[in-house]
């Protein structure tokens, strides 16, 4: 689908690389110590991974929205979970490529080693990011089925908003009230804190993975149920047809 779609290539490679170097070079200019540089690089790479993976999940419906071909997808004998799962798997593969690329840049350009925590903790961190992305992507899909074209903007804004609240470049303790409390309800906060803990940063949370995966699982279950409800609603209100005209 993205073979000749230049925008998709930008999403997958251009923006993550540009974003990574912008932030990375800023840390060089500010002459931060290696751990603080790592803190920020973890943030920008996590952001890139989530952006790429969640947009792939959202594209389960976004491409149909843009092409006005929604009805052809929903008349096919495919279950919604197959559609979303397939898109998520593609998203995982692509964002993994982005992660590997940016991790290599981190190592060779900024001398920051992502493998320091070990392969298993890093895999858990990445799994957390992928699940968070699935959750964001599904939220976009749900909003599309409810609000149609108006929800398109959510595909790019939701993950940025979430990153802002979850302390992408800073600890959440510096956020004004009630944002730290809101951050505690978002799994990404715990996954970032988990990986940063290997580099000497402690957010003061306990059971980071348990909270992270627990919340991610909870949101996914809620969103699967919500997706079914809004799909049913879309078939009642004619939204699928409206998005195909």
């Amino acid at each position: 689908m993205t073979k000749r779609n230049i925008f998709s290539l930008f999403e997958i490679l251009f923006w993550p690389v540009v974003g990574f170097f912008s932030v990375g070079l800023l840390t060089t200019f500010l002459d931060l110590d290696p751990n603080r540089t790592g803190f920020i690089l973890i943030g920008i790479i996590s952001m890139s991974v989530i952006q790429v993976c969640q947009i792939d999940v959202a594209e389960a419906l976004l491409y149909d929205l843009w092409a006005k071909s929604m009805k052809h997808t929903f008349i096919a004998p495919i279950h919604p979970h197959q559609l979303l799962l397939g898109s998520w798997i593609i998203g995982v593969i692509r964002s993994l490529v982005v992660f590997l690329l940016l991790a290599l840049f981190s190592l060779f350009v900024f001398d920051f080693d992502f493998l320091r925590p070990g392969v298993f903790p890093l895999s858990l961190f990445l799994l957390g990011l992928f699940l968070t992305s699935a959750s964001v992507g599904m939220t976009v899909c749900i909003l599309i089925l409810v609000f149609g074209y108006k929800a398109e903007v959510a595909a790019w804004s939701l993950s940025s908003l979430m990153a802002l609240i979850c302390g992408i470049y800073y600890p959440i303790s510096i956020l004004p009230t009630p944002l730290p409390e809101i951050a505690r309800g978002i799994p990404l906060t715990y996954f970032l804190a988990y990986l940063r803990s290997f580099y000497g940063f402690q957010e003061g949370f306990q059971s980071l993975l348990r909270w992270g995966f627990g919340l991610a699982g909870f949101y996914l279950i809620v969103e699967v149920i919500l997706f079914r409800i809004v799909l049913h609603r879309a078939k009642r209100t004619g939204m699928i047809l409206k998005l195909s005209e």
């Binding site: 689908m1 073979k3 000749r4 779609n5 092409a67 071909s69 008349i75 096919a76």
Partner: peptide
Amino acid sequence: REKVNLSSGNANFLWSM
């Protein structure tokens, strides 16, 4: 849905493919 299909006038499909 396994046994039916639909074709409509003013057809729209994924434009980049």
